[in-house]
Design a protein around this nucleic acid. Structure first.
Lengths: 139, 139
DNA sequence: TTGGATGCAAAAGTTTTGCACGGTT
DNA sequence: AACCGTGCAAAACTTTTGCATCCAA
């Protein structure tokens, strides 16, 4: 099982909670908030406490199995399975759905910026906002 | 006084608190967090409560005099004087200093994305992370 | 004078932590 | 058996809100 391997390879014990949380994230195409994870797990009769959800997410984030992200207009953090590889997000302002964009239009720009500013650039984060086709219809 | 005009033009009463908060933001080249504003004002012997700081920031944000933003790795919201015009941020991972970048390398990209996804694109947010010259030296 | 602005205190929401207990290796 | 993981409750922290009072227009 991939998920158990993910855990073991990173020196994390394979427990019901961790496998369940990592599993949900791995199968979701959307970043998920901590409270949503908590409720989804409860629905599956996997009872765990809020502290465990947060501690698990922290452990998984530390080991880079999971990415933590925040988007403008959201007060809480979101978590997603770390599928490696650079990604941007297209966020629907109507339904809050998040689409991953794998193509990066900023290749080369970091190099230009480095020359201009003398900063050592280590990465960037691009979020694009708009309305998905569904939300355009209903308004 | 520009700041008083800003307030009046937007139907906001000109009060000590609002002028002080807007003034600090206007003179800062960095986005500022609510608690930092609170402390800076106290140092200037302008005593006001936390609720007022938040309520004032909310009013100023609603009127678009101020922009509210959140950056990855920061738990609290930051606020900056709205200097109009599109901006990106270059954030130092060492000292957390934020540099404004006025040039936008994404002209045209939104149009391409619109065709690819059928989303109505309304904007984007680009944060670039790195280390400023000072922080590069001290490490 | 009147409605909006402020202070205080309490509440709400998310996230963290202390401590005792339980499960994995 | 040892150590890490978990549950529960309480705390920390940012932000919001209710209500009485105060101030700008």
């Amino acid at each position: 099982m991939d998920i158990v391997d993910d855990l073991k390879r990173n020196g994390l014990k394979n427990t019901k909670c961790r496998a369940a949380i990592l599993g949900i994230l791995e199968q979701s195409d959307q970043p998920v908030a901590a409270d949503r994870l908590f409720h989804e797990l409860n629905e599956k009769n996997i009872m765990l406490s809020f502290s465990t959800v947060y501690r698990t997410l922290e452990a998984l984030t530390d080991k880079k199995l999971v990415k933590k992200l925040t988007i403008a207009g959201e007060d809480k953090a979101l978590f997603e399975y770390n599928r490696k590889g650079h990604r941007h997000y297209l966020i629907c302002l109507g339904c809050k759905k998040i689409l991953s964009i794998e193509h990066c239009p900023l290749k080369g720009y970091e190099e230009i910026l480095k020359k201009e500013t003398d900063y050592a650039i280590s990465g960037h984060k691009l979020d694009i906002y708009g309305y998905c086709p569904d939300c355009q219809k209903h308004e």
